[in-house]
Design a protein around this nucleic acid. Structure first.
Lengths: 177, 177
DNA sequence: CCGTTGTTTCTGTAATTACTGAAATAACAA
DNA sequence: TTGTTATTTCAGTAATTACAGAAACAACGG
């Protein structure tokens, strides 16, 4: 697949964007390419188009698969696996929301709760933390819990519902002045 | 400032969490420590407590300052600067939201719009992209624009209003079924 | 003015992370 | 089976990033 200059720019930007959000550059670039492609691509074509090693693409595709962002497709008369990404941006967004909640919010919340508990019944070893620090940790835990609950509800929406919610715009915010 | 085992664990976890969100580990740890501290701390005490080089703390504090997450305080009879972080978790959250929108969403949106424009009036050089790829990029641009608008409104809320909105919970989501 | 104390910037090094190319594995056809 | 093609794993290397320590700088007191 030949990339026009603009398509190259897009792939580069998406790679950068993903990078800032803690996703490896290569992974994000593969994803970008699959979004642009009008049909599923085999791994070696991805490698060639992006100018990276075949093995690198394999790893990236596996990671994207782990997120549920790409799936494999089989083409008649071709033994190679072909890869495509989801068609709907909203669906991708919801998947990422779900995954990040599971991978980052949930473990953090568990850790904070454990800290809170340890301080509460930690005897004199923890005494110096019992005041301000304990309050602070509890506060954070509550915050993450709320965030988590919101993420969960949000992630449970259908793409269509999420779209509608966003379209509501102002109305939601006026609820709380 | 002496850390209890639990406080150490908290600092470590927060560092890890920040790390996953694209913030340097050291920066996140300094931030964690300042949240725990009952009063503003001077840089050298932070360095000693965390067991990192003084210069490292200086850099981290500067970055946190750039985010607006710490401010300096002067203590009577002490020439050193003391540092503290914001008292309200919600306020911190809103600051981070604002900053990330500005640093990541805005530039990405600009890049995507530029890509769209380039494809539209790019002559035959861009012709192969005019179909599927162009549609996909435009779709993404629209999506990020909506996200951006939401983030902007959200970030404009007062901490109290944000709290209220979160407390509304289910009600919001029931709006869109 | 000089000496002291606190802070930042800079440079080299250590540690991490990303990536390639080769080797191993698997899937299939003849 | 054996040869062929697709894919993954792995080990070594390149590139990046984080960090410590030194040097430079700034603020202040004498």
């Amino acid at each position: 697949m030949k990339l026009t200059p603009t398509m190259q720019k897009f792939v580069l930007h998406w790679g950068e964007m993903g990078w800032k959000w803690g996703i490896s550059r290569a992974v994000a670039q593969v994803h970008a390419l699959l979004m642009l492609a009008p049909k599923p691509l085999p791994a070696d074509e991805i490698a060639e188009t992006l100018g990276v090693a075949r093995s690198n693409v394999s790893t990236s595709l596996k990671e994207l698969g782990g997120w549920g962002l790409v799936r494999t497709v089989h083409v008649f008369g071709d033994r190679r696996e072909h890869f495509e990404t989801l068609g709907d941006v909203w669906e991708m967004f919801l998947i990422i929301l779900r995954e990040r909640k599971k991978r980052e919010l949930d473990p953090t919340l568990a850790a904070l709760r454990a800290c809170s508990a340890a301080i509460k019944d930690g005897g004199k070893e923890e005494a110096p933390a019992a005041g301000h620090a304990a309050a602070r940790i509890a506060e954070l835990a509550d915050f993450i819990e709320l965030t988590s609950a919101w993420a969960e509800r949000g992630a449970a929406l259908s793409p269509a519902a999420a779209r509608r919610l966003c379209a509501l715009g102002d109305k939601v915010f006026r609820l709380v002045g």
